[in-house]
Design a protein around this nucleic acid. Structure first.
Lengths: 194, 194
DNA sequence: TAGATTGTTAATCGATTAACAATC
DNA sequence: TAGATTGTTAATCGATTAACAATC
């Protein structure tokens, strides 16, 4: 998606797997193989139409719908995510923010009020929510997550450094373990002298 | 590291690859294979000593040193990372913060002053910095990154949605593409109904 | 000594790459 | 029609799993 948006911005109409390969650092073969798992989006002798490929991949990822999102934990990271307008552009709309701190409750982030975490079940009964973003301290992560899943949440974007084992199995968890990423950087700094 | 710290917190002294396997969701075989690529940390009939394994992996990742870190871009995300004490505990010490906004310059995050981005080269000449965290808008990412590398920075933790192709090749880049992670969540919500 | 569990080799599996006929 | 490039099969490569002798 990132590379295709860039191409669209630059008014590139068509692209071959070879050209994509040069940009993205995968082999052309792999790009063709992978795209072909989802359908034949290209045309022999022509390549791929950028707009068409973009919209096909959007559809595959599920970006043609919008998603109702709540953010649980409005510390710096929660607020950063709440303020990030690009998510809304892609169809992820923040409908609620929750925290425990009395001084935060009642304040707003981009027009959305921060509510007490105690009101979350009431909120979820009234409003259908697809995705919960977890940016809370790790000791509360599991209990909060398990409370959420009983209210029809479909996915959890988990920023806590805990691997959530949920009681209900059909909930999708996507981990954004930032400190794992930092340790990877550290390892590579120390070991990838070429 | 996450699982081992948890074991240490719970005063677990030794653990077998089988037990780790149950916790982590890898096969015991893979755990033994992977650890063995770095050395024989276990003992037949006993398993792995948790403290010892933790310290060996710390060493491999490079967590026995400390790293001087600067954060470039002190919006919500930059400040969130600057405030995250756990990074400092692991040896990643924030030595400088930089931004373009005049109203931010001169203010402090956890005792570290936000400086003008124009003063960054001067700062880097005076102070040795290992890691730069990039939390700036994507249009400035590449030029800032290339400016950094000429001053002895070893690694870049890249939160911008751009893949940095740097002029200098021996700089390690670790991408934390948060929106990629969100799209993965979206895809899995729509496609992983089991 | 018997039991447990590693380190390590061999077997299996899946993912990547190469090659090319089909076709725009 | 000739050239370009896909879709797709076959070959290669690497990673995961299974198995077990070594040994604590």
């Amino acid at each position: 998606m990132r590379y295709l948006s860039e191409l669209i911005e630059n008014d590139v109409v068509r692209i071959s797997s070879k050209e994509l390969s040069d940009k993205m650092g995968f082999t052309a073969s792999q790009i063709r193989q992978d795209l072909n798992n989802f359908g034949g989006f290209g045309q022999q002798g022509y390549g791929y139409n950028v707009e068409h490929l973009y919209s096909e991949i959007s559809r595959i990822i599920g970006l043609e719908k919008t998603y109702n999102v709540i953010i649980i934990g409005t510390g710096n990271l929660g607020q950063a995510l709440g303020n990030y307008v690009d998510f809304e552009k892609k169809g992820f709309v923040v409908k609620g923010l929750f925290d425990v701190k009395p001084e935060l409750i009642g304040t707003e982030v981009r027009g959305v009020m921060i509510r007490s975490i105690d009101s979350i079940e009431e909120f979820l009964r009234a409003q259908s929510v697809d995705i919960a973003v977890l940016t809370i301290p790790k000791n509360h992560a599991i209990s909060v997550a398990n409370k959420l899943v009983s209210y029809g949440i479909k996915g959890i974007w988990n920023f806590t450094p805990v691997d959530l084992k949920l009681e209900q199995q059909d909930i999708v968890v996507e981990n954004a373990h930032l400190s794992d990423s930092l340790l990877t950087l550290s390892y590579n700094i120390n070991n990838s002298k070429i």
